[in-house]
Amino acid sequence: MARSIFILLLICSGSFVKAQEQKVVAASKFEEIEFLFKTEIDSVHVINFWATWCGPCVAELPYFMEASETFANQAVKFSFVSMDFKNQYESKLLPFLKKNQLPGNQFNLWDMDYNAWIDKVSPAWSGAIPITVIMSPKGKLLATSSFESSEELFELIAKSLD
């Protein structure tokens, strides 16, 4: 009896973790996700801005999946900030994420006052998406255009690791 409860708990906790992984945090204000760009970190954090309707963004997403596998045993975290509009959260973003697994944490940023927060990510960012920001103890690295291959992404992550 105790054993089956234990197994049941195990299964529940397992599915709980899984559900957590799929969770999308919707943020109305940039300030709610600003912590992602804090420089005092001890690991590498890969943050990608994208949208379901941005062709070059979607095309490079598989590279991040590959990277999460390649760097699975190293201190590399992933976060995705979707710029899908508020009225696309249910209709586009959630179905997309159900079909396409992305590593790490999922955010959907609805802060439309772009000019107020683009420079907070980086003054070097023009505002074009996709963009990938790699935070590490060494600082902030920007990839301001889409990756042509997974190797390009691996290289940047490796550079931030060593």
Partner: peptide, 12 residues
């Protein structure tokens, strides 16, 4: 004023 603003857009 302002004479320069940023916005999200698609990469050329």
């Amino acid at each position: 004023s302002p004479d320069f603003t940023k916005a999200l857009g698609c990469t050329i």
